[in-house]
Design a protein around this nucleic acid. Sequence first.
DNA 1: CGAGCATAAATTGTCTGTCAATCCTGTTGA
DNA 2: TCAACAGGATTGACAGACAATTTATGCTCG
Lengths: 237, 237
Amino acid sequence: MNDAAPIPPTARRMAEEILRNAILTGELKPGQRLTERSLCELAGVGRTTVREAVRQLESEGLISTVPHRGPVVAVLSEGEARDLYELRAMLEGQAGRLCVLRGDESHAAALHAAVDQMERARQAGSMLGILEANAAFYAALNAGARNEALRQAMLGVQNRLAFFRFSSTRWPGRAERSVAELRAIAEAVTARDAAAAEAACIRHIEASAELALLVLAERARGADMVRRGRRNAMERA
Amino acid sequence: MNDAAPIPPTARRMAEEILRNAILTGELKPGQRLTERSLCELAGVGRTTVREAVRQLESEGLISTVPHRGPVVAVLSEGEARDLYELRAMLEGQAGRLCVLRGDESHAAALHAAVDQMERARQAGSMLGILEANAAFYAALNAGARNEALRQAMLGVQNRLAFFRFSSTRWPGRAERSVAELRAIAEAVTARDAAAAEAACIRHIEASAELALLVLAERARGADMVRRGRRNAMERA
DNA sequence: CGAGCATAAATTGTCTGTCAATCCTGTTGA
DNA sequence: TCAACAGGATTGACAGACAATTTATGCTCG
């Protein structure tokens, strides 16, 4: 399984990784302004290198840049979030379908294993465990679907929606329903029912989207209240 | 329709545009090695700027870079091309479906107009005209589908497959069938039949994929013959 | 003549410093 | 209260420098 190509880890790639993780984990919050200097410190590289890394993250949709104002951690409008969730539903639905058409029982087993893992993590209250299990689930789904381009597209969309992962898994009762939805996918794959798998994937994402948009609306109200107090509240770290 | 935000054209964006066009138009050929200096000359900017532009194109999939060896115009393996066409079929199928669900008769009219435009261009033998009409068709489809994220994803995939646009439109009889396929999409949209529109989109892409893979195989044979003659033929400009 | 290796040249990865253009902020003045 | 303006901070872009690494050259030896 190991790639025979030992890619030399350049400083740029490491910086990229550091910044990406900082955004995905929420260490850097949406709307936060990122001065080049602060990023240099954070990543431990020079300005040239940081700018290249920022360019990469920009085209992944994690950062938006306005010329002469510098990079900002991307903020999703409600419309953008809606579009992204819709796209995600399409992509994952197709992944589910392909997983049935091209996967075998080993993939179905991996899906069930991931669901079980998530259920255990949920009962243990381990949010990190839940996220890990989720990653395992999608790894299995994509392994079955056997389409690298689709996998990358899904990853990109998921990353852009990463902000909602935290608020979602914390929402009361959401994790439990989420497990049930994923189990429905796993069972459809086991049953080799492509249409059912596709539908189950779409249902799962639609449920996620519903919650995310709710969270977004609530957050917007909160931001409004803060904004009334002092301006540009989100831009200060 | 005009955006109220007049984005300042930075040198980087212009360089990006120049390089992207050079790749999309085939001026820079797949597999061709790109030294930083030559790109500086081509884009008329400094090395720092060119490197940032390359980073952008790299993450668009138009360029691949191996550390310490420099950027190369991306080459698609047969498997990658297959995956991308499959993904493209999914995306455009969904776009067609959404265009029916969310578009109105103005979008249907725009689709038909684009098809007519393409038919005229085809009869006039204008390849450029065909490509323009194609762009108009997709613009109309995406306007109807009303999903910016989907539009961007489609654009990215189409760009990565740009290499095949030329060989495809030249193939004897292909343009004619292509027009017929697109007309089928436009008619499905006019008839407000979402399933038919989706199916028509998928059929169109599958037909394109079939030809592209054929072209790819033929090209591979040709490259083999050249490679037997002298090594690294593709790497010399 | 060709294989193998040492050396030179070219190229990339990265940093630093510089300069103009632009944005942000606080102050001044009407 | 609001407009204009000046100063500082930040970005956009460039050139130059240097180490690390790849690629090309050329030499030796069998």
